[in-house]
């Protein structure tokens, strides 16, 4: 394995290492996607299809651009003033970067959950009711809140304290409340950036189970550094890697069986077996 060969490390993944879906209409499809922060390119030429109602994990060494790519999927990078996004992301048939598209609406349809739970400093109820209220879904708000908290597998733990601050519960509960908040507007896709990395094993298990349950109706793209977690919860895994010039690229994308069982790219093998990264 020519791991120290800088040319090799800089190469994009070869076409045969990147899964495409001829038979399935992808719910998200990035083409030629590049992101720069100021003058520095962070990811380059990413092309990836996310099939509907699947769980796709995004893995790779720190700094390879996973969060950057994830943020492209719901225009979160718009909120970073130095970020420039080139290329296209098709979502349900339209390019979300087209001028006529309202990024706020996109962010409701493609929700996001972050590494650190970030409930608003408001009641648990208000946290979950926030999105529906903005969207004018004020009928049956109680039912929406309950249903979302149930789907996020945290209802039983918080149902008697819905008026308490979202910050007054445990980290694992906060994270599930944030997931409930994302689910309350019935998103088609949920993006998760290391959602369980700050949680204990029990809360992690709850989140993992939740992801698997959600995947029958919602598409999930999840960044994780935990290979075991990725193999447990996802259908497909995408591997990113930054070469010598520190520009992240997609090097391999396939089934879990491929990526964690018998990777095609030597860099993937080295990464998943802990030899690099």
């Amino acid at each position: 394995m020519a791991l120290n060969d800088t040319d090799l490390l800089s190469q994009a993944g070869s076409a045969e290492n990147i899964m495409t879906f001829d038979d399935i209409e992808p719910i998200l499809e990035a083409r030629d996607l590049s992101v720069s922060y100021g003058t520095k390119m962070a990811i380059s030429n990413v092309a990836i299809q996310i099939p509907k109602n699947s769980v796709v994990s995004l893995i790779g060494p720190s700094g390879c651009g996973k969060s950057t790519l994830l943020r492209c999927f719901n225009r979160m990078n718009d909120l970073i003033s130095s970020a420039t996004v080139r290329g296209s992301v098709n979502f349900a048939g339209q390019d979300i970067y087209a001028p006529a598209v309202d990024p706020t609406e996109i962010r409701f349809r493609i929700g996001m959950v972050f590494q650190r739970p970030n409930p608003f400093p408001k009641s648990i109820y208000e946290n979950v009711a926030f999105g529906p209220k903005i969207n004018g879904m004020t009928d049956d708000l109680d039912a929406v809140v309950e249903n979302s908290l149930r789907r996020a597998a945290v209802w039983d733990e918080v149902k008697d304290r819905l008026g308490d601050s979202g910050l007054s519960v445990s980290g694992g509960q906060q994270q599930r409340i944030c997931i409930a908040r994302a689910l309350a507007v019935n998103p088609e896709v949920v993006l998760m950036d290391e959602p369980a990395s700050a949680l204990d094993p029990i809360s992690t298990q709850a989140i993992e189970q939740l992801i698997q349950e959600l995947s029958s109706e919602v598409t999930i793209v999840i960044v994780t550094h935990n290979m075991q977690q990725a193999t447990r919860i996802s259908d497909y895994a995408a591997v990113m890697m930054a070469g010598e010039e520190r520009v992240g690229r997609l090097i391999e994308y396939g089934t879990n069986d491929q990526v964690f069982g018998n990777p095609k790219d030597a860099r993937t093998e080295a990464y998943v077996t802990g030899r690099i990264g």
Binding site: M227, T231, F260, G261, N262, P263, T268, E269, V272, T273
Partner: peptide, 9 residues
């Protein structure tokens, strides 16, 4: 080690 890929095989 919860081995992966070549290690697991």
């Amino acid at each position: 080690q919860a081995p992966m890929a070549g290690d697991l095989r």
